[in-house]
């Protein structure tokens, strides 16, 4: 009897924790939606800003964020996945490899503003890419790298040894086994890493602060060497600069809502792909 009571209290506590978490999550979505929805209109989504950021839309920032995120993933996914494959499948399980693994995981904990300064020093100044989509994409890509590597590593390690053996025993080469068996099986897990990185990259402000973002650009980016507007930086700028705080605040909430929606949309697509893949695998 006493045992049951303790157990029920335990379950109740756990359940309450879930509720609290859901309340936070729900209220974020509620407040951002309630305040952001007011300014969302067709014009807001399809035009550039006017009248010192107090009117018009934020399309350049949406496009900028899209380019930066896309660039970062295009850079980080092949590189990160290759690293993960090498670490999991090829490198001998040695002391040095463990150090590399730990270093990669620690890289994930580096504050994003540090990545920003690094990007400024390396991509903007050293490689002379200037403040541009390219510099920003590389900087964000490096930020996403550890996420992608560790998610891919976990996904690769979760592939049962038995099916690798099966493939090898049929006369497949190691690379053939990785390409035909290991990677397809690990794909859902790898996609999870990509989803997480997209969410992280799209919303980061500090790394693009010195490497890519502009408060205002005339028209749309013309090449990968153009400065861009980006949603997170736009929100930051609206809240800290300018002369019409009230109007700017409303637009900032609008931007937040769009950013939230973009991230959810991209995640949704990736989840759909993952589910489909699981359906095939199951």
């Amino acid at each position: 009897m006493k045992k049951n009571i303790t157990q029920n209290i335990g379950f109740l506590m756990l359940f309450l924790c879930i509720i609290v978490t859901l309340i936070f999550l729900g209220s974020i979505i509620y407040f951002i939606s309630a305040r952001g929805a007011k300014v969302i209109s067709w014009e807001f989504l399809t035009q550039g800003p006017r009248m010192g950021m107090t009117q018009g839309g934020v399309l350049p920032a949406i496009i900028g964020t899209f380019y930066l995120t896309l660039g970062a993933i295009l850079f980080a996914l092949p590189l990160g996945l290759s690293c993960a494959i090498y670490l999991c499948e090829y490198s001998p399980k040695s002391f040095v490899v463990n150090i590399i693994r730990i270093s990669i995981n620690n890289l994930a904990g580096v504050p994003s503003v540090v990545f920003g300064l690094f990007g400024l020093a390396v991509f903007v100044n050293f490689f002379k890419f200037g403040v541009s989509i390219l510099s920003g994409s590389f900087t964000l890509g490096i930020l996403a790298l550890p996420l992608i590597i560790s998610a891919s590593q976990e996904a690769l390690m979760a592939v049962p040894q038995s099916i690798r053996e099966a493939s090898l025993s049929l006369g497949a080469t190691k690379w053939g086994t990785i390409k035909n068996i290991v990677l397809p099986t690990a794909l859902p897990g790898i996609l999870t890493g990509v989803i997480l990185s997209i969410g992280r990259v799209a919303g980061e402000t500090a790394p693009i602060l010195f490497t890519a973002a502009a408060f205002y650009t005339r028209g749309y980016p013309k090449s990968i060497f153009s400065e861009v507007m980006a949603l997170p930086y736009h929100i930051y700028a609206l809240m800290t600069e300018g002369t019409h705080p009230d109007q700017q605040k409303a637009i900032a909430y609008g931007c937040s809502l769009i950013l939230l929606f973009m991230v959810l949309l991209v995640s949704g697509i990736a989840i759909a792909i993952r589910q489909r893949q699981r359906g095939i695998n199951a």
Partner: peptide, 11 residues
Amino acid sequence: GMVFQKPNPFP
């Protein structure tokens, strides 16, 4: 060829 202890078909 080899057949293993536990059936290990590919997914």
